[in-house]
Design a protein around this nucleic acid. Structure first.
Lengths: 340, 340
DNA sequence: CATGTTATTGCAATGCTGTGCAACACGATT
DNA sequence: AATCGTGTTGCACAGCATTGCAATAACATG
């Protein structure tokens, strides 16, 4: 003896139910929710009223079936809780929501198998695009998305034939080297992680290149992880390996914080004894305990570029792939000694 | 002159295409991807081969249409990039992926309109459930999800008639008060934000209650935001308002970091002059610059509880709503003076 | 009053997959 | 040889919303 308000079974309300309640055909319901469709004002009102009473929402699954695509956009990443990654996820999801999409976050390990599963899942949901925030999709997955016409966008990672957006790692490294160089430093060091991502590797390599070009011999130390503890570990090994450096470039902020804390514990003064520069400009870098000089990589800028690539790619699926590089900005705080 | 490998239009590959290539009916393709279905080993192999060549993936939109539900689970939140929120998102998305779901993250402002839109979007995609990480859904949305039989789960927020999982704020406040009490402190203070969430309010109120019960008169200061700068601002106002406290309870870690930095700048020694306790146990709390004593709220525990509620709710949609409270653990570091 | 025009509305097909039902083939049994 | 059981396969429909097309009604015009 249901009164028709609920459907009893806890099922989703369908257009059929709304049509019956309003005494019109299913088509009329559909038209009532399609802007610009031909429908009499009075029927429209009756349908809307019935829909509101029943709590009806259009089924985007069926809509997507017809359009052969959904509004989902996949964000695949690992370490979703690291500060910079979290900022990117926040900025990207916000930008995508504004665009009308539904961002699906696939937070997984970085094994090939995990990434393949993520990509397949997104394909199964006919996601409008897949964005890789970290790591590279396995070759087989690239082919799969290509076969299905699903755009694939990479962040801070280049891959021939794919759209990507990167910060200008090379320029960032140059700015870092120049800033450190101006302090009159001569014992340069770099902290990185073992088996670095291409972006991290590029920063290290470019920095080392500039140092060598200026006649220095940079000391490069790599830790197991690119996090706070990795930074500490690398700094410890750095100090143990010989004379302390007077200029240190960390390929990301998190490692810089770890390094800073270890250097201070070891009795070194920053920036008097050692100048330190990080990369990313995570919010913590502005905190008074660190006041880290670093290279700013704006997550909102990344999000904007991703959206613009997405728009272009959808407008013209066959356009040649683009790589967008955006500049990186040195924000000067208090971990670099004043110019000599 | 396509060879049939691609479909030219950049459309997704359908079962129809696979069927044609393998020379079987569409049903056979469907059965080839349904475990346990009746199909000859040889046809299965032929279908799989054709599917692999074409890059076919089952269309979960159509599958969901049939089942009248999708595997999407909505995670609606604001401030997705704050450390604790980011940890929750990471833990929840991981747990949900393991369960076979696709977490959709709706990162929005906390206005009623934003939340209503998020909820509607999730309804339109027939999401299996919606989880609110922060804020409360507007009453109209609660009704809407109820009408559509979509489970709704709240984190750190109670609402009659809804499933929820919370940490034991009251007990946490008690542990904080007792730990601070043991230092022999007498000038208690609390830092919170203006217009706090119920959870934050509960911590403050409970702590103040215990202090009053012990004959103290706690000084409560509220800042505009519950972040680092809010913590600094509150600490500044706290010191300006009278004699410095010797015991400070911050309702979350982020504000504790801001407060710590300001206290130190103001020349106070922690923990000798002031003991400080935070809440959440964000990773930064373990860093040597802070070594914050705090109440640990385990994001993985939250994720596990959410999944268990989800399973229960799906198994029995009409079960009475449950509120799960999980304990909070005091992790002792170096911002609380040793016992007198 | 007859005819033409316009606005609405319903019908039916489409998109894609899962599945009950019936048909079919094939080997086995009596 | 007739019958039966078993395994396999295709047909057709369901599930939900969109949309071209045709039918209808209401109205205006000559």
């Amino acid at each position: 003896m249901s009164d028709g308000k609920d459907n009893g079974q806890g099922r989703f309300v369908s257009a059929q139910a709304v049509a019956e309640r309003a005494g019109v055909s299913r088509s009329a319901v559909s038209r009532a929710f399609t802007p610009g469709a031909s429908i009499a004002p009075e029927t429209l009102a009756r349908v809307h009223e019935a829909a509101a009473a029943l709590g009806y929402q259009v089924n985007d699954l069926a809509r997507g079936l017809l359009a052969n695509r959904s509004l989902l956009v996949g964000l695949v990443t690992s370490d979703a809780d690291s500060p910079f990654r979290a900022q990117m996820i926040a900025a990207l999801s916000q930008a995508l929501i504004e665009r009308g999409n539904v961002p699906a976050i696939i937070n997984i390990g970085s094994t090939v198998e995990d990434m393949a599963n993520a990509s397949r899942q997104l394909l199964r949901y006919r996601a409008e695009a897949t964005v890789f925030l970290s790591g590279s999709p396995p070759e087989s997955m690239v082919e799969l998305t290509r076969q299905n016409g699903q755009p694939l966008i990479l962040i801070n990672r280049a891959e021939t034939g794919l759209d990507s957006v990167h910060c200008d790692d090379m320029d960032g490294a140059q700015q870092a080297f120049e800033a450190l160089s101006l302090t009159g430093a001569s014992r340069f060091a770099v902290i990185n992680k073992e088996d670095p991502s291409p972006s991290l590797a590029a920063r290290e390599q470019a920095f080392a290149g500039f140092a060598v070009a200026s006649g220095f011999k940079p000391n490069i130390v790599r830790a197991g992880h690119s996090d706070y503890d990795g930074g500490r570990e690398a700094a410890r090994r750095l100090l143990a390996s010989g004379p302390a450096p007077d200029a240190l470039f960390c390929v990301n902020d998190l490692m810089a914080f770890g390094a800073l804390d270890h250097l201070r514990e070891a009795g070194l003064r920053v920036p008097d004894d050692v100048s330190v520069i990080g990369f990313d400009d995570v919010p913590i870098a502005a905190w008074t305990s660190y006041r880290l000089t670093t290279l700013r990589q704006d997550p909102h800028r990344i999000a904007t570029e991703v959206v613009s690539i997405l728009n272009r790619r959808i407008a013209d699926p066959d356009a040649p792939p683009v790589s967008i590089y955006f500049p990186v900005e040195l924000v000067v705080r208090e971990t670099v000694k004043a110019r000599q």
